[in-house]
Simulated scan of single mutants.
Amino acid sequence: MNSKPNAEISSLPNAKLYSYKELQIATENFNLANKIGAGGFGSVYKGKLNDGTLAAIKVLSAQSEQGVREFLNEIVAISGLEHANLVKLYGCCTEGEQRILVYGYLENNSLAQTLLRRHSNLKFSWKIRTRICIGVAQGLAFLHDEVEPHIVHRDIKASNILLDKDFTPKISDFGLAKLFPATMTHVSTRVAGTFGYLAPEYAIRGKLTRKADIYSFGVLLLEIVSGRCNTNKRLPVDEQNLLETAWALYEKGMLIQLVDKALEGDFNADEACRYLKIGLLCTQDMPKNRPTMSIAAKMLKGEVDVDEVNISKPGLLTELLTLRSSGNAPPSSSAGWGTQQDKSSSSQSSNMTYATMSFTSIYDRSN
């Protein structure tokens, strides 16, 4: 790693620099027994720091400049931020070619691993689910409205919501986050994120606003209540897309059928239907019709009446699918979905590119 990243990190008063030796000791030389996660970014290890604090130590692969950029972006975005529903970044290591992030350790993994994939024996009661939904909403409202400059996360999804021992949700992975000064309404940028959670106006035109995060949150909300991924190709064709299924049931007045069967009826039916309606409100096709995160949080807590608000059809990426099938989609990038180089512009959305990855492959990532 060159000296520029080190200089940028050193200029941040809340970013502690760890030595590689410290983190080697903390993880028992990155012992596989301490490995708690892995992905395209690299590996995550559980470790114990010098002061006895447990930490999640994320070792990023050093394959491209994109990795350096996201690494720096994450540190700049959340260094010094304090909120009950955001991961705590302790610091990092930039020794030699190393790119390592050190976070607070969270005992109950991610929603993707536990609730949606059922890779644990954790029981998600209705009370726990409501706490998770409200917590994520409050964390996003903090990023959107209380932080200056405002922060748009760009990759809200189940795998980026981590849970502590008390099931308090923590928003994680700020590598794709964008900082929005109060005077800026939107940026036009290349697409980054995860298919299934992407707002159509962002995926198709590259127009990024806080409403893109709100769309992603709406999808996540439906997942938490239903206990299923936003796309599941193992289901019958007409049930594979969670948003489409939710809308069809809403139109029939049968939303209750979408609630996770694993709850075995032990939930508040009115509250569950309200949460599903909020999910649909957040995923409406027109961004201006989606509530702000602050309002969504109040709706979840019952402080704002959802039934007084008209809900329109959710935005789906059917337009993009049609464009691709007709050969009229914008040119593809060789970088792959969610890894394109991000160059913001106030007006040039024509530079946006799309991944060469097939839609079938992208869907498979969500299952």
Rank of each mutant, 00 (worst) to 15 (best):
G42Y: 01
S61M: 12
T53R: 15
L32M: 14
A38T: 07
G42D: 03
S43M: 11
A62Y: 10
N29F: 12
I36S: 04
F41I: 09
K35D: 00
A56P: 01
G40H: 09
V59M: 10
D51S: 10
K58H: 11
N31L: 09
I57R: 00
G37Y: 03
Q63W: 12
G42M: 03
I57G: 00
L54Y: 10
K58F: 09
G39V: 06
K58I: 05
Q63V: 14
G52Q: 05
V59N: 01
K48Y: 07
F30C: 05
K35M: 13
A62K: 14
N50R: 13
F41V: 07
Q63E: 15
L32R: 12
K35R: 12
A38H: 13
A38N: 14
L32T: 10
E28R: 13
A55N: 04
N31I: 07
I36L: 09
A62T: 12
G52M: 08
T53M: 13
T27W: 04
S43N: 11
A55P: 00
V59E: 01
A55M: 06
N34I: 06
G37T: 02
Y45D: 00
S43Q: 11
E28T: 08
G37N: 06
L54I: 11
T53N: 13
K35W: 04
F41N: 06
D51N: 13
T27E: 04
Y45F: 15
Q63I: 15
V59Q: 04
G37F: 06
G37H: 05
E28W: 08
I36R: 05
